[in-house]
Every structure is written in C-alpha cells, then in structure tokens.
Amino acid sequence: MSKLLILAEHANGKLNPATAKCVSCAVKIGGDVHIAVFSDSGQAVAEQAARLAGVSKVLNIEHADFTDPLAAMIAPELAALASGYSHLLAPSSMYGKDVLPRAAALLGVNQVSDIMSVNDARSFTRPVYAGNAIIEVSVPEDMLVAATVRTASWAAAEEGNSAEIEQLAAQSERPSHTRFVELQSEGGDGPDLQTASVVVSGGRALGSAENFELIYQLAKKLKAGVGASRAAVDAGYVPNDMQVGQTGKIISPELYFAFGISGAIQHITGIKDAGTIVAVNKDADAPIFELADIGLVGDLFQIIPELEQALD
C-alpha cells in the first residue's frame, strides 16, 4: 500500500489552503497520508493539519532555523524523512516549487510537476505548454514518487478529523549559506486570490494605479479577490502577487471577471479552471471572447460604474 507524505505550507500560524488540496490528491492516490509541518513553533498548524479528512498522522518538526521557509533548510529535512514513504507531495505553489525539486534531487528522483489528475498510484496527468497540452506521466514501479499538486485542479479536503500528531526533531545539518532577509508583502485586505470564490481582474486598459481603484471598488462590492494581468503588474498599477497566469497564480474561482484584458495564452492558463468567465473588452475581436462564458463589448470605464449601480 502507498504511504504518502505531504509538505505543509503555512504562514503566521495558519495552514495554507493549498495543503488541504494536496490532501485530496493524496486521498485519490490512496494509502496512508501523513503531513509534515516544519516551523519554529508549529503546534497550531499541526492541529489544523490533523483536522483534515483522510490524514492519518501529522509530523511536527520544530527548530529555530525553520522560522522562514527556506528551501535550503527544508529540502534536506524532507529528504531525510522520505525513507519509508512511497510518495512525497507538495502544492505547486511558489513554496512547493522551490522546495520539492531540491528534495527530489537529493533523493535522486525526478519530480512530476503539477498533478491534475490521478490515473493510478504511479500514473498522473499534468499540463505542459502553458496548458495547451495534457500529458500522462508514470513513475517506475520501485521509485519514490515526488510530485507537486496543481491546486486549481483539486477541491480542499473536508475538516472534522483528529489525526495523531507526532513531534520529531530536525535530523539533517542546516546550511548557513542562505539567509532570509525580509518578506515584502503588499497584498490588500480583500479575500485571498487563490481561495476567493469570485475574482475581479484588471488589465493594461486600466491605465494607472489610480484607475485600478475601480476594480478594487467593484471587488469589494462582490466580496471578491482582485487579480491582474502581467501588463498591469509590469506597468506598476498593482503589486506582483496579484498576477494571474502562467507565471503568476493559477486560480479556480466560481466567477471570474476580466476587465480590459486581451486574453493572451499566458493569462488564459491561469483562469481555465474558473467556473464562469466574464470578459469586458472594447475590442470585439479580443481573444478573451473565445474563452469567455459571458462577453460584453464596451468601455470598462462606463461598464464598471454601471455594474456597480446595478448591484446596489
């Protein structure tokens, strides 16, 4: 039977929802599912992880060096823990993508990136070419499966469990060659982009940071997260953590609004899993309309205020 270890992602004492999505993938693979929490004081996070349905054990590994999530610290620990497991999983968030390949290389195995679906315990599908093709990847029989899980493809595991929590000590030597300096977080106070059920995004068409207020206001009214195209980020209208797409966040809200976004394939990659896509663009030939479920041709500077009024 498979035995799976999931790398938990967390910050400020909170388990990131990406971990619960990883659990769903692990449950689909089937077997004994464990979660590893690395931190300087992880009991609260471990307890949240222990509540996830399908988890049989949480490993809580505390060390003062684990305050900041550095791949150079965590990967050797994860590699040391991996013996006895058939699968090593992490969310394909920036964190998972940073740590897991480093651990896989230490273990001498290739990694399967971005699992979309599970065929069997060793065979998966994943996107390539910015989601323009889906491939089947299988891992040989006697080899550890190291994989990241494409969170937009998986629902979060339910809560209501109370798995055992085991305290473990750090095992490997921790390098001094990598030092955390700071995290510059600019994120607003709205719902998190990756878990929000409604997301409102703006593109280059907004024209300035001031004009982007229009998007924030509408989002507030809809209790929505706020996203942006790369062009809007590059032009400095919004911070980088709001970018949606191939090199930003892959999201799967129930409802997605794209205002003044042309629909480049790198942007589309990030929103393909959305339930309903609404596009507003003044160019009737914009590629975004090929994908949108509901399209409206028009000037966003007129349409957004009208929409806000209609919502009142």
Binding site: N110, A133, I135, E136, F289, L291, A292, I294
Partner: peptide
C-alpha cells in the same frame, strides 16, 4: 531520464460562451 511520458491530449475545451449587449443583460 526515468519518467515515462505517455499519451498527449489537447486540454478540455470550455463550452461556447454567449455575448450580452449591455450591463442589464450581464446582470
């Protein structure tokens, strides 16, 4: 080079969308 790459397929297509004429139609 030990991962086995199997079949390639195009991504699932989303259903054909509709166009609306104005905000009232959208709402």
């Amino acid at each position: 080079n030990d991962l086995k790459i199997g079949n390639w397929s195009p991504p699932p297509q989303r259903g054909k969308g509709i166009m609306v004429d104005d905000v009232a139609g959208l709402v």
